[in-house]
Amino acid sequence: MIRLTDVKRSFREAETGAEVTAVEGLNLEVARGEFVVLVGPSGSGKSTVLRLIAGHDPGPVQSGTVRVDGEPVVGISPRRVLVSQDPALFPWLNVEENIRFGLRALGRPVDVSAWVSALGLEGAERRKPHELSGGMRQRVALARALVIEPEILLLDEPFAALDALAREQLQEGLEAAWLKTRPTVVMVTHAVDEALKLADRVVVVTARPASVCDELRVEAPRPREVAELGLLRRRLSERLRSYRAGG
């Protein structure tokens, strides 16, 4: 459903004016309903890949193609929603209103109670973002995105800023929500365990410029105990280490 072909994307660095190639020769295919996780060293252009699929930053320098269902991606669309580390909640709206935002904008019925429960937000509906913890905010950001039932959900290290417990709870919440509506998911993370827990397929991305250098299918049944995936985990960690070292 999503196909990136030989994608190259460069930026002009603001301070030095130097051209930085974030992504080069990247090929990636994601099937409908698949949960794909991109892992790789920091700053390896993984975020750029997500933004390209989402249609943010069309940018001046680009070659290759980014297609969804055969059509090139042009601009932002509610069919391809991006959720980042920064939840970017609307500070003047409470939890419920934030979640309803997309539905309102798209003129759809605004009953969000099911999603409020699904992400464990009962009781917090009237609270404003500044009254919430980091974990709660990310739940709201996720609910807000899931509620409009996008075809593609793009997650850019959404749980990186959270403590271990919140992280675990949100991973479970995400998986449960995903199983309900089965959007196509492309997620970026550093955490190997997180990748193995959630992914149908783990894609290893090299350091800048980003391109795909390895893939791992995870066929264990859900929900998974990552401790039982010991062998897979070791393989993945080894590969990441070797790519980091430039091997």
């Binding site: 989402a54 943010h56 932002i76 669309s77 509610p78 391809r80 929603v81 991006l82 980042s84 920064d86 970017a88 609307f90 935002f101 997309g102 904008a105 798209l106 807000r144 995105a145 409009i148």
Partner: peptide, 13 residues
């Protein structure tokens, strides 16, 4: 913040 405007756009605004 650009992220706010982007989010709004992404959600259909």
């Amino acid at each position: 913040p650009a992220s706010l405007v982007e989010s709004a756009k992404n959600l259909g605004s």
